[in-house]
Design a protein around this nucleic acid. Structure first.
Lengths: 142, 142
DNA sequence: GATAGTGGTCAAGCTCCTTGACTATATCGT
DNA sequence: ACGATATAGTCAAGGAGCTTGACCACTATC
C-alpha cells in the first residue's frame, strides 16, 4: 500500500524533474507527455499509428501531436520506404538534442539511487520494475 | 537512465491496474486522477484550496473536481469549524468504500514485490522512493 | 480483380483546466 | 478599533488536447 503511494509519488516527482531539466536546457515548448513520444520516435521506424499505439491514444491524437512536433522542429515526416499510405516520423537534429537532454536528466535524477544501491542493485531494481510493466514505457494516461 | 524509464513505466502500469480494480468494484464513474484527490481528502480536514495545492492545480479546478465528486456522491461539503469562508470537503460512506477498494488494489498490485523483497526490503525501498518525493503523493501532472 | 483491412486526414464536439474578475471573511499593522 | 491586505470560494469565458465519426488512398487477401 505505502509502497504504491511512494512509487506513484516518486514517478510524479521524477517526471517534473526531468521536465524542468529539459526546459532549462532550452526546450521550453515541450510538455512531459512529449517525452513518452520521443522514446518511441527514437528508433526511427515509427509511423503516426505506431505512436498512437505506444501512447495509448487515437491515431488522430497522435497525428495532431506529430503536427505540433513538426511545427516546433523536433521531428519531420518522410515517405515510408515500402508503404505509400504511411509516413515515417523521424527526429530532427533538434529532436535528438532534446532526447539527449532528457537522457541526461534521467541519469542525473537517479544518481543518488545508483550510489546507494550500487550497479547490481540498480539492475535488480530495474528488472523488478520492468516485470510489472513488460511493454516498455507507455504514457501513464491519467 | 533505464531505471527512470522503468520507474515511469511501472507507475503507469500500476495506475492502470489500480484504476481497473476500482472500476471492477463498481466505482465506474471515477478516473485515476480522482485517486490522488482521495488521498488528501482521507484525513477529513481538507478544504478545496488544500486540495488544489495537493494536486497542483488552480483552486477553480479543485472546486470543479469537488463539485463533480459531490454530484457523484463521494464527498460532501461541511461548514468549516473556525473559518466562515472555508468549507471542509469530507468523504461520504461511498467515498470511504472507494478508498478501501483503492487501498486493496494497491496492496494487491505490489504483493509480488513484497514476496520477493520481504518486509524489510519493502520498507527500505519505500524510504528510498519517499526520499525522492518527500512531499507525499502529488498528481503527476503530465 | 473484387473485397476487406490499414495509414492518415478532416471536422465537430467534449472534458478538464486555465485566466480574470468578483464577493465574503480573516488577519495584520498601526 | 479600523483600515489595508490576504485568503476561501465562485462565476464566466476561453483554450489545449483528446475523442468519435466520416472519409480517402493505398495494401493485402482470396
Amino acid at each position: 500500500m505505502a509502497l504504491s503511494v511512494a512509487l506513484l509519488a516518486a514517478a510524479g516527482e521524477l517526471t517534473q524533474r526531468i521536465h524542468a531539466s529539459v526546459v532549462a536546457r532550452g526546450f521550453e515548448d515541450l510538455r512531459p507527455a512529449h517525452g513518452f513520444a520521443f522514446v518511441r520516435l527514437g528508433t526511427g521506424d515509427a509511423t503516426a499509428t505506431d505512436l498512437a499505439v505506444h501512447l495509448g491514444v487515437t491515431k488522430q491524437a497522435a497525428g495532431q501531436l506529430v503536427d505540433e512536433l513538426v511545427r516546433k522542429g523536433y521531428v519531420e515526416r518522410r515517405p515510408h520506404p515500402t508503404d505509400a499510405r504511411a509516413r515515417l516520423v523521424v527526429l530532427t537534429e533538434r529532436g535528438r538534442a532534446c532526447t539527449r537532454a532528457a537522457e541526461d536528466a534521467m541519469a542525473e535524477a537517479v544518481r543518488p539511487w545508483a550510489e546507494r544501491l550500487g550497479e547490481d542493485g540498480v539492475r535488480a531494481l530495474c528488472e523488478q520494475l520492468t516485470a510489472v510493466a513488460p511493454e516498455g514505457p507507455v504514457r501513464p494516461a491519467w
